[in-house]
Measured scan of single mutants.
Amino acid sequence: NLRWTSEAKTKLKNIPFFARSQAKARIEQLARQAEQDIVTPELVEQARLEFG
Score class of each variant (00 low, 15 high):
N1P: 15
N1S: 13
N1F: 13
N1L: 12
L2A: 03
L2S: 02
R3Q: 10
W4K: 00
W4F: 01
S6L: 12
E7Y: 04
E7S: 08
E7L: 09
E7M: 07
A8W: 01
A8M: 01
A8Q: 01
A8Y: 01
A8R: 00
K9E: 12
K9A: 10
K9C: 14
K9R: 11
K11E: 07
K11S: 11
K11F: 10
K11N: 06
K11Y: 11
L12K: 01
K13C: 14
K13I: 06
K13W: 10
K13Q: 12
N14Y: 10
N14C: 14
N14L: 15
N14H: 10
I15L: 08
P16E: 04
P16C: 09
P16Q: 03
F18K: 09
F18D: 05
F18R: 09
A19W: 15
A19P: 03
R20W: 05
R20I: 04
R20T: 03
R20F: 04
S21P: 09
S21L: 12
Q22L: 14
A23P: 00
A23W: 12
A23Y: 11
K24M: 11
K24H: 05
A25Q: 11
A25C: 09
R26P: 01
R26M: 09
R26H: 09
R26Q: 06
I27L: 02
I27A: 15
I27Q: 00
I27S: 10
E28I: 08
Q29F: 13
L30D: 01
L30Q: 03
L30I: 07
A31Y: 01
A31R: 01
A31E: 00
R32S: 05
R32D: 03
R32P: 00
R32G: 03
R32F: 07
Q33M: 13
Q33Y: 09
A34M: 15
A34Q: 13
A34S: 11
A34P: 01
D37P: 08
D37M: 12
D37Y: 14
D37C: 08
I38L: 09
I38H: 07
I38G: 02
I38Y: 09
I38E: 07
V39R: 00
V39A: 01
T40F: 04
P41R: 06
E42C: 03
L43K: 02
L43N: 03
L43Y: 05
L43C: 05
Q46G: 03
Q46C: 06
Q46M: 13
A47N: 03
A47E: 05
R48S: 10
R48T: 11
R48F: 15
L49N: 08
L49K: 12
L49W: 09
E50Q: 10
E50P: 05
F51Q: 06
F51V: 07
G52Q: 15
G52S: 14
G52T: 14
G52P: 10
